[in-house]
Amino acid sequence: MGDTEVHALDDVTLKIEEGEFVAIVGPSGSGKSTLMNILGCLDTPTSGKYEFEGRDVSKLNDNELAAIRNLRIGFVFQNFNLLPKLTALENVELPLMYAGKSTAFRINRAKEMLKAVGLSERLHHKPSELSGGQQQRVAIARALSADPPIILADEPTGNLDTRSGHEIMEILKALNKNGKTIILITHDLNIARQAQRNVHIRDGKIVKDEKVGS
């Protein structure tokens, strides 16, 4: 068993166009998280090639990869990944702080993004004072703060009740209509079918790639 080589992804060919809303669907252990990490420039493939906006990711240095993650992709995670001691406003400001933006710009932009997700009245609340759905909306506002063209959402409704999950999906659909490319990772077919395209992955292979939405 020690000599068995396991391929998290095996012979995967995938192209995502600007402005698409794509759901990558599969059960636990299917390889979808590995694919997400590669798409998000969090990992590089051990073989094969990944091009991001026409650039071969394997040829980029750490600073160039960090710039993609900070400015070109907004990440939304199942567990929200908010800093517990910071307010909603301060959490949304963080990417702009790393980008070297001024305090005034950060505050105005963070307020604008929180308003966009319906949380103008919760600016100074900490995560523990917010519901799960509200925390995920803060996470989406944070992902949007640097105005990236791509939102990469990993099981964004996984820890939410049905109503809150529906609200999050409506926000993602609205962002897509406004031009954002949305890549959604999920195990839930009901969630996936709200995207425009479903890429089904199983045992590290893409088994189906279909148009589903309007």
Rank of each mutant, 00 (worst) to 15 (best):
G133N: 05
E51M: 05
E5M: 11
K180R: 05
G179V: 03
S145Y: 06
K208T: 05
E112N: 04
G179S: 02
P84C: 06
K115H: 02
A174R: 09
L184D: 14
R142D: 15
P45D: 13
N159S: 10
P149A: 07
K49R: 08
D10F: 05
K208C: 02
T186E: 01
K32Q: 00
I16D: 13
T186V: 08
K111S: 09
Y50D: 14
D62T: 09
M97F: 15
D11R: 00
T162P: 08
L96W: 06
E20L: 01
K59D: 14
F52L: 12
A143R: 08
D147Q: 10
N190K: 13
R69T: 06
D161E: 10
K101R: 02
D188K: 00
I206A: 14
L130A: 11
H124G: 00
L175I: 13
C41P: 10
I38K: 08
R142S: 12
A192I: 06
A67S: 13
S120K: 03
Q78Y: 14
N176I: 05
L65I: 12
G179A: 04
N37H: 11
L152T: 04
M97N: 14
K205V: 14
R69K: 05
I16Q: 12
M1N: 07
I168M: 08
P84S: 09
H200E: 10
Q135T: 08
F80Q: 06
E210P: 03
G132D: 01
T157Y: 01
N176P: 11
T87P: 11
S30W: 15
R55I: 07
L83S: 10
Q136E: 04
P95Y: 15
A153F: 00
E155L: 10
R197I: 04
R202W: 00
I140G: 09
S131V: 07
M113G: 03
G29K: 03
K173N: 00
D62A: 06
A139P: 08
I150N: 04
T34D: 03
G213C: 01
S131C: 08
G48W: 15
H200W: 10
Q135E: 09
V138A: 02
I183L: 14
I185S: 08
A110T: 14
I151S: 04
S30Y: 14
I38M: 11
P148E: 02
F105D: 09
D3K: 07
C41N: 10
E5F: 13
E64C: 11
I171A: 12
G158R: 12
P148A: 03
T157A: 04
I140Y: 11
S214N: 05
I73R: 07
R202M: 03
I171M: 12
E170W: 02
A146Q: 02
N37P: 07
K15S: 08
H125P: 11
N178C: 13
N61E: 01
I182Y: 01
D43C: 00
K15D: 07
R106P: 11
D203H: 12
L96H: 07
D56A: 14
R193C: 06
L130R: 08
A146V: 04
A146I: 02
L123Y: 02
S164N: 13
T4A: 09
G179N: 01
V207D: 02
S28F: 08
V207I: 10
V57M: 12
V92C: 03
D3Y: 06
E53P: 04
E93I: 09
G118E: 05
P149Q: 07
R69Q: 03
R197W: 08
A99T: 14
L14H: 08
P27R: 06
G29Q: 05
